[in-house]
Amino acid sequence: MPTTLLELRGVGKVFGGTVALSATSLAIEEGSFVAIVGPSGCGKSTMFNIIAGLVAPDGGDVVLRGATITATTGHVGYMLQKDLLVPWRTVEDNITMATRLTRRVTDEDRAEARRVARQYGLGEFLRHYPSALSGGMRQRVAFMRTLVTHHELLLLDEPFGALDAQTRLEMQEWLLQVWKDTGRTVLFITHDVDESIFLSDRIVVMSPRPGRVVADLANPLARPRGIHTLLEPDFIALKAKVLGLLHGGAA
């Protein structure tokens, strides 16, 4: 019986008359990779901001491993489409940035940053400033920064949304590798249906504004996944289903 890591209990948010997110309940299993798809403006980012503690929900609770963390920060890893690397720090120092924001960075922190960077293809860039890196490289650094916070739950909000198709596919495979190695729990927002299916164990589909969960689908595709996955009948079937849900009709 898998343990629940995160639970949303009826959290919702209204911004000045606009319902950004209808009361939503959701349980996320430890170690799983859950994709959240939905049209733009349906409240996906708002849901993440509530989980991260940036936005206080109008009602309901966020529960992480049994503890209520509603409207408090410092419990999850969080990454956006914008890499938010700071230009004045090297790659290594950007990776340890989250730590630096809460306490002194120790030699162990630095050693760990170097280790993960080397392990995942950034070893040669440790002393580079972010301005010298490509978009894909920058997102890798941003993800490493998220990883070394040691939070079990990682919230990734369209992290590859700004990358070209080729780089994006590379990054998806890369992310699956890191996820497999580290055993973290990932919540992944995307509006790219292919991406959601390629990556996830489970797909949460949201309706247009006011956003709510309209379907919660298990993803049966075998791992490890690769380009061949994109051509499997199960992939096509799931894609048809999700597209149907997103565009109103039932598939």
Binding site: H75, L84, A98, L101
Partner: peptide, 18 residues
């Protein structure tokens, strides 16, 4: 960038460290 400040908040940064 307000997103950068928000990121710092998510990590639990104090106002001083931010």
């Amino acid at each position: 960038d307000p997103d950068l400040k928000n990121l710092a908040r998510v990590y639990g940064a104090s106002r001083w460290r931010t």
